[in-house]
Structure formats: structure tokens, C-alpha cells
């Protein structure tokens, strides 16, 4: 038996029926074609699938799509506009804060939440807040630098 869902994804109202066991990540990727949300571990550890739900970071592999009923979801596809890159994308690009890019959409959600909360541009705080997102390429250093710059600290 499917459940009928209504939610907002990247500013657009979505009405869809899905099997209750569908995770939010699978709804985004397989039902809505938003494959920018990446699934790494599917057990809440790697952080690659992190999206914003009502403006707050959430693991889309650990949330059932059904539980996102009525919520507002923002994915990586909701960040860039036709007029150009989002400031987070620009900063990550400038500081070489990504290599393969698999983990990057998850980092963006985490960094966007930090920016909207006005988190202090302090390296220890930034490293703690980023600790829920795993990156196997960069060694984190450039991600921390880009994030500090976005939070208003010195790059």
C-alpha cells in the first residue's frame, strides 16, 4: 500500500505516491530524478546524503519519505541558479575543497546550515560541525578553509 505525500522540494510543491519504506534519499533520487543527493553508506554515518529539511540539516537516508510529509526539502539542485554558482560552490571551487565531488552535496547542506545559524568562524567549531561529513579525497583542510571564509573568517 502506497502513501500519498505532499512536500516542497527546492521551492516546488510535489505530490507523489510512494511505498512507505522509501527513504527521502530514494524519493529524491529515484522518484524525482534529483541525483545530486548522493548515497554513500545508507546508515547515517557518511553524511553524503545530507539535505536541508525545513532549513535544518538531515540525513536523507535516515528519514522515511513519509516522515517528510508537509516539510520543505532543499537539495543541491536547489542551490545553483541559472545566473551562476552559489557562494558555497564558489568558495569550494576557489579553495579546491573537493576532488571527486561525491561528498560535496552533503557538505553544502551542512555548511549552509552553519551560515544560516551564523556559526562563529572558529576553526575548532567548524571542524566539529563538519565532522559528520566524511571526505576521502581532500583531507578536509581546504573544506575547512572554504567554510571559514564563508562564515566571515580569514581564508
Amino acid at each position: 500500500m502506497k502513501v500519498d505525500l505532499e512536500l516542497t522540494v527546492n521551492g516546488e510543491a510535489v505530490g507523489i505516491s510512494a511505498d512507505p519504506r522509501t527513504t527521502l534519499a530514494d524519493l529524491l533520487r529515484d522518484h524525482l530524478g534529483l541525483t545530486g543527493t548522493h548515497l554513500g553508506c545508507e546508515q547515517g554515518v557518511c553524511g553524503s546524503c545530507t539535505v536541508l529539511v525545513d532549513g535544518h540539516s538531515a540525513r536523507s537516508c535516515l528519514m522515511l519519505a513519509a516522515a517528510a510529509q508537509g516539510r520543505e526539502v532543499t537539495t543541491i539542485e536547489g542551490m545553483a541558479s541559472e545566473s551562476g554558482l552559489h557562494p558555497v560552490q564558489e568558495a569550494f571551487s576557489r579553495h579546491h575543497a573537493l576532488q571527486c565531488g561525491f561528498c560535496t552535496p552533503g557538505f553544502f547542506a551542512t555548511v549552509l546550515e552553519m551560515m544560516s545559524e551564523g556559526v562563529l568562524a572558529d576553526e575548532a567549531i567548524v571542524r566539529e560541525r563538519l565532522s559528520g561529513n566524511l571526505c576521502r579525497c581532500t583531507g578536509y583542510h581546504n573544506i575547512v578553509t572554504a567554510t571559514l571564509e564563508l562564515l566571515g573568517g580569514r581564508p
Binding site: 538531515a58 540525513r59 535516515l62 551542512t110 546550515e113 559528520g132
Partner: peptide, 9 residues
């Protein structure tokens, strides 16, 4: 307890 993304939910 976990990370912020876990604590948010």
C-alpha cells in the same frame, strides 16, 4: 550525541 544532522531529527 551524534552530529547536528542527527540531532535535528
Amino acid at each position: 550525541l551524534g552530529h547536528v544532522a542527527i540531532r535535528n531529527v
